[in-house]
């Protein structure tokens, strides 16, 4: 049985490493709540590299404009066709911002149009149940970025399975802390990451 390895996408155009503690936090959550075999550290995988296909779930974030090279675009197309899931989160939390605009433009070129996911999407019940859809982040509540609480995530599905999950809710900030600090929280705010991983592994 192959263990799950959390992969962060490295792309050429922006600050892909803006949330370096997020992988450890997500790995910690997977280990805390599930029996999934998980590697203790994450990996960084360039989008243009064939290595991308070793990690069928890849996380991508940043603040700066996203412009994929032709190689990255071609890789992502194949990645989606073969069943990989790309999770993109806007670290600016700003739908008027350059990351959001450029990322949606580039992702639309690769995947086609993004569609909002309804509250009843299987992602929100894959492990923990989130009846109201994606959980709100503290940054949203604090008026960070565009000062909006985004009610939905967006995505692209192929044959009933998500291949792209796009978030404006700034989970990158929400989850970018050392997992040791989880004990300070009354409610673990990383539980939704477990849903994403369990969904990717079981659908």
């Amino acid at each position: 049985m192959s263990e799950f390895v959390f992969a962060t996408a490295q792309y050429e155009s922006g600050d892909w490493d803006s949330a370096p503690l997020l992988p450890a936090n997500v790995i910690d959550s997977i280990a805390r709540y599930t029996s999934i075999e998980v590697a203790p550290t994450g990996v960084i995988v360039p989008l243009s590299s064939p290595s991308l296909f070793r990690y069928p779930l890849v996380y991508l974030t940043g603040h700066l404009p996203v412009r994929f090279s032709d190689a990255e675009r071609a890789n992502l197309r194949q990645f989606a066709a073969r069943g990989g899931l790309l999770f993109v989160d806007d670290h600016n939390h700003d739908i008027d911002g350059t990351f959001h605009k450029t990322a949606t433009e580039e992702l639309t070129r690769v995947y086609g149009g993004l569609k909002p996911l309804p509250k009843t999407h299987p992602l929100y019940q894959a492990f923990f149940v989130f009846e109201d859809g994606p959980p709100t982040t503290s940054h949203e509540l604090n008026g960070w970025g565009d000062n909006l609480v985004h009610k939905t995530l967006s995505g692209v599905e192929r044959e009933g399975r998500l291949v792209l999950l796009f978030s404006n809710k700034d989970y990158s900030s929400e989850w970018n802390y050392h997992p040791e600090n989880k004990r300070f929280l009354s409610v673990d705010n990383t539980r939704f990451s477990v849903n994403i991983v369990v969904y990717a592994l079981t659908r």
């Binding site: 799950f4 029996s35 069928p56 399975r161």
Partner: peptide, 16 residues
């Protein structure tokens, strides 16, 4: 099977 990529993609391949 347990939740891993083999189980996921065997399901995917057979479904497709």
């Amino acid at each position: 099977g347990q939740p891993d990529w083999e189980e996921k993609f065997v399901q995917a391949a057979l479904g497709e």
